[in-house]
């Protein structure tokens, strides 16, 4: 579904991604772990072209999205993204956040978009907060609205960049539960996260990124319990402390 070939990304002189070649299958759940600065966010952001790869090619359904020929906005409709800091639109209420893109992009009438929006909010358990503004939602609620917002465009792939690391511990569970539900529906997901228990339960594969490459990958059990690489062992020892 997503094929990445020789992906490189530099910011000026700093080379952040140093050649990544991977294939992610339909309905697969990939959890990406790795130290800060190893390039996890950059990899994710290259997938929906929020960052332009310096070289290498990315294919979605066999169609190349790199090289400048592809309609970036059409691509992004099919790929939802959830950010660490939620990035909800403060000038719209929860429902407005969810319905903005369907109204503007799919030319949906407002009432139909609101039906859709309420359905999405129901999915994340927030119908009662539909008319609250983001400033009046808790972190966990904000992130769930952000997930509903991304789902409203009916994407085929969902990208999550550390969706729970800005949350208070007691709110992590509610967000992970929504994500697990999504996974059970068969969504293709790429998730940057250090929630080991969640990764064990949901992930088909775990990527360990180190210094711009996927150094080690495999089933969660293999990577977490029997890491082959010394760097992976070091990293796991550090985050488990």
């Amino acid at each position: 579904m997503i094929r990445i070939e020789g992906l490189h990304k530099s910011f000026g002189k700093l080379e952040v991604l140093k050649g990544i070649t991977e294939h992610i299958h339909p309905s697969e759940k990939v959890v990406v772990i790795g130290a800060s600065g190893s390039g996890k966010s950059t990899l994710l952001r290259c997938l929906n072209l929020l960052e332009m790869p310096t070289s290498g090619r990315i294919f979605i359904h066999g169609e190349e999205i790199t090289g400048g020929r592809h309609d970036v906005n059409m691509l992004r409709r099919k790929m939802g993204m959830v950010f660490q800091l939620f990035n909800l639109f403060p000038n719209y209420d929860a429902l407005g956040n969810v319905t903005l893109a369907p109204i503007k992009l799919l030319n949906m009438p407002k009432s139909a978009a609101e039906d859709l929006g309420m359905h999405m909010l129901e999915k994340v358990g927030l119908t009662d907060k539909a008319h609250e503004f983001p400033s009046r939602l808790s972190g966990g609620q904000k992130q769930r609205v952000a997930i509903a917002r991304a789902l409203a465009m009916n994407p085929e792939i969902m990208l999550f960049d550390e969706p729970t690391s800005a949350l208070d511990p007691e709110m992590v569970g509610e967000v992970l539960a929504v994500m697990a539900g999504l996974a059970a529906e068969g969504m293709t997901m790429v998730i940057v996260s250090h929630e080991m228990a969640f990764a064990r339960e949901v992930a088909d594969r775990v990527f360990f990124m180190d210094d711009g490459v996927v150094l080690e990958q495999g089933k969660p059990d293999e990577v977490f319990s029997h890491p082959r690489e010394a760097r992976t062992q070091e990293f796991l020892a550090r985050v488990r402390k």
């Binding site: 929906n48 929020l50 906005n73 059409m74 691509l75 992004r76 409709r77 790929m79 939802g80 993204m81 950010f83 800091l85 990035n87 909800l88 639109f89 403060p90 000038n91 903005l100 893109a101 503007k104 992009l105 952000a146 917002r149 991304a150 465009m153």
Partner: peptide, 26 residues
């Protein structure tokens, strides 16, 4: 915040839509 632009663009909204409905009101 630049995250607002990124959130808009990641939904598939174009530059003009993002400006008009997300950035300029704020």
């Amino acid at each position: 915040d630049h995250g607002q632009t990124e959130a808009g663009r990641s939904l598939g909204l174009g530059y003009v839509h993002t400006m008009r409905f997300i950035i300029l009101p704020q």
